[in-house]
């Protein structure tokens, strides 16, 4: 199985955290928060489309009963496959860090 790229991982985590409220803009804001950088809204769509193609996220209809304009938003949901890929990435990272200390906190 192909490994997730870094940006894919961050976006997938954002979608996971946002849950029912994950669509383009909210994902972008979450990514911006986590990375502490101001992301362009358009910049997340290319990795998001890749995640969708690889089956890590799926598109679901928006919440019912909101105003029609909001229905143009595309909401995303992490698939089980996506979850598994996330877990795999996390384990790889953890294995890589095992026995090492965080350079920022440990070494002044």
């Amino acid at each position: 199985m192909k490994l997730l790229s870094r940006i894919e991982e961050i976006i997938l985590l954002a979608v996971l955290r946002l849950g029912a409220d994950a669509y383009g803009l909210t994902i972008c804001r979450e990514v911006s928060r986590v990375t502490e950088k101001d992301w362009l809204v358009g910049a997340i769509y290319a990795p998001l489309a890749r995640l969708h193609k690889n089956g890590h996220v799926e598109i679901r209809p928006g919440p019912q009963g909101v105003d029609p304009a909001e229905n143009r938003r595309i909401y995303y949901l992490v698939t089980p496959q996506g979850l598994e890929a996330l877990g795999e990435t996390r384990r790889i990272t953890a294995r890589g860090w095992l026995g090492l200390s965080d350079p920022k906190t440990e070494r002044p």
Binding site: G24, L25, C28, R29, D38, V41, G42, A69, R72, R73
Partner: peptide
């Protein structure tokens, strides 16, 4: 159209969080 939709959403968020002037600039 999609991009504009997103930009408008962003603007509405920003309006509340950082004020109209900054929102417009962004």
């Amino acid at each position: 159209f999609g991009a504009l939709r997103d930009l408008e959403d962003l603007y509405l968020f920003d309006l509340k969080e950082i004020g109209p002037r900054a929102a417009r600039r962004r």
